[in-house]
């Protein structure tokens, strides 16, 4: 299948390239835009971005393999990122992560059997004073304890039953 992007995404891509005197600088913004639309960075996406920015595919590939936020494969419908680092861990971050794994019968880094979530540990999210913190997609949740974990898991499941909004 040919590589296609929505016209809004293409417009944003053309706009963002103008922000820099050197096209290559737009690699990260383009990777973000493509991943936001497609969920991950495919081989075709790497080729497409490289061509768009007059680069070699390796120049894009080496970014995807270095920067933790970019992924080569699809993940669950919701992305649950639990902060692993010290301030959160001191207040129970590891337990929160374990509980999420149990709630969805899955392991960190895998897609849950129902396809709903991918749970991951991430490093400090710069909200250490209100830890443990969890990011679900773009949303930050603070002071997450056992009760709040159950509540968040229930909310994810409830939202899964509703038809997608877009």
């Amino acid at each position: 299948m040919a590589f296609t992007l929505k016209s809004e995404t293409l417009a944003r891509i053309d706009e963002v390239i103008t922000h820099y005197p050197v096209k290559r600088s737009a690699s990260l913004p383009l990777l973000h835009l493509v991943q936001e639309e497609q969920g991950y960075i495919s081989d075709e996406a790497i080729e497409w971005i490289a061509t768009k920015l007059d680069l070699q595919p390796i120049n894009v590939y080496e970014l995807v393999t270095f920067y933790p936020m970019f992924r080569r494969h699809p993940i669950g419908r919701r992305h649950v990122k639990v902060c692993r680092t010290l301030s959160c861990a001191l207040n129970g971050g590891y337990k929160v992560c374990e509980q999420f794994e149990k709630e969805f019968n899955t392991h960190r880094g895998e897609i849950s059997p129902d396809g709903e979530v991918t749970i991951e540990f991430v490093e400090c999210l710069a909200s250490c004073g209100s830890g443990p913190v969890v990011m679900i997609d773009d949303e930050l949740h603070e002071r997450v304890d056992a009760a709040k974990t159950s509540e968040l898991a229930a909310r994810i499941r409830a939202e899964a039953k509703k038809p997608a909004s877009s």
Binding site: L86, E123, C124, A126, S127, C128
Partner: peptide, 11 residues
Amino acid sequence: DESEPGTFKDR
């Protein structure tokens, strides 16, 4: 970039 563990001010 605010990424040093323990730091949360720029946010």
